Amino acid sequence: MDTSLSLARGTAAPASANPSASATPGAGVVRIADDKAMLRAAADLTRDLVKPRPAVYWGDLIASMLLGYGALFVAATSDSTAVTVIAAIASVLGLYRGLSFIHEVSHMKHASVPNFRLGWNILVGVPMLTPSFMYEGVHNLHHAKTRYGTVEDPEYLPLALMKPWTLPLFIVVSALAPIALLIRFAILSPLSLLSPKLRTMVVERYSALAINPQFRRRAPEGEAKAYWNRLEIAASLWAITLIAITVTGVLPLRAFLTILGVASAFAVLNQVRTLVAHLWENDGETMTVTAQYLDTVNVPPPALLPALWAPVGLRYHALHHLLPGLPYHALGEAHRRISAELDAMSPYHKASYPGLPGLVSKIARSTMVRR
């Protein structure tokens, strides 16, 4: 679902302390030159890590969903408040981890992990009303070198340059995602078959996991369109069924509300992760790869909690922007190799942060600065 907000943009990006940065005349924006030594080291040191390991992918996904769905059942049926709360938390973490594999699905060559995309859609995408077409064909635009941080990037807003009230709004609105997805697939999907105009709107504006309100996705073609249609039909039928069995009492209201509550919780958790995935300091200018890296965030060990709120390799988000083809299970080793190879003055180390509170505080402070 397009979860974008119509938020006003700032007027200039903050200055950088990088000595290789140079000001763009008249733009008030600092441009950072590519650090060739860093880019070369990242590529050279990780050539043997590019092959995905299917057993890791399948084992991780299945374990995550067993935990997520099993704990959800307990939370929806237990008579103990304590058990319900503990089970709900476990369900949020399991389902959130399973859902995060949509990021891997959008990057992988599907032949490298046979049938993983299909399995993910069956286990996660359709049941959770986030089929893979919501991210495939969208997320790759975020990695395009000439699109990142511009108005053509579906996953970028200069949040650090906006008003302070936009940050809590950005988080709070995500709690409505489960209801929005139910409306998208149970109501808008069927109705759009009767109206070409509505169908165009649904495809362009309500079929992408994007935060940029100006983004409009293109309609799929060929094989991609056929795959999209199959997934959309399945998700639509499931959404209608879920509502129908709740209305008729087959699914108890408590269970339905528990499902919505857990889904809202991991939607908010993901939005918090999104808030700190970048520094959000670019105001539409094209950026070098190094500049994009420095606008992105790693939260490496020894911090432990990022494994929960930034799962499936997302704690190495900046490294992922350097090496988007690297499988999630290889990012930790890649980070260790690159960190050991590059000296302390390398820009590589400047994208690493100790944890969530400091990142939230940094972005919040940026919104307080008058620009």
Results as ranks from 00 to 15, higher is better:
residue 68 G to P: 14
residue 133 F to R: 08
residue 235 A to F: 06
residue 249 G to T: 05
residue 11 T to V: 09
residue 348 Y to F: 13
residue 46 T to G: 00
residue 167 L to D: 02
residue 152 E to C: 06
residue 237 L to G: 14
residue 81 T to H: 02
residue 110 H to T: 11
residue 290 T to I: 01
residue 219 A to C: 03
residue 145 K to Q: 14
residue 182 L to F: 06
residue 112 S to A: 12
residue 187 I to H: 13
residue 69 Y to W: 12
residue 4 S to N: 14
residue 195 S to A: 12
residue 259 I to R: 05
residue 151 V to T: 15
residue 257 L to Y: 14
residue 96 Y to Q: 15
residue 86 I to K: 04
residue 316 Y to K: 00
residue 278 H to N: 03
residue 341 E to H: 07
residue 120 W to S: 02
residue 121 N to W: 00
residue 264 S to G: 03
residue 305 L to R: 09
residue 98 G to L: 05
residue 132 S to L: 09
residue 124 V to H: 08
residue 125 G to I: 11
residue 145 K to W: 05
residue 348 Y to M: 13
residue 114 P to E: 01
residue 217 R to N: 08
residue 203 V to K: 07
residue 112 S to K: 15
residue 83 V to Y: 14
residue 353 Y to Q: 13
residue 41 A to D: 09
residue 22 S to G: 10
residue 122 I to K: 05
residue 85 V to Q: 11
residue 47 R to A: 07
residue 55 A to M: 04
residue 358 G to T: 10
residue 304 L to T: 11
residue 52 P to Q: 08
residue 236 S to I: 05
residue 87 A to Y: 00
residue 133 F to A: 09
residue 212 N to G: 03
residue 232 E to V: 09
residue 176 L to K: 10
residue 5 L to S: 13
residue 257 L to R: 07
residue 191 L to E: 02
residue 324 P to F: 00
residue 54 P to H: 05
residue 151 V to L: 15
residue 216 R to Q: 09
residue 332 G to D: 13
residue 120 W to N: 01
residue 6 S to F: 09
residue 16 S to N: 01
residue 309 W to L: 04
residue 37 A to H: 04
residue 88 A to V: 04
residue 220 P to I: 08
residue 231 L to W: 09
residue 161 L to V: 02
residue 157 L to H: 01
residue 363 I to A: 00
residue 270 N to S: 12
residue 151 V to S: 14
residue 129 L to E: 01
residue 38 M to T: 00
residue 124 V to Q: 13
residue 158 P to H: 05
residue 354 P to A: 04
residue 170 F to R: 07
residue 175 A to D: 09
residue 59 G to H: 02
residue 223 E to Q: 11
residue 245 I to S: 07
residue 361 S to K: 15
residue 73 F to H: 15
residue 149 G to I: 02
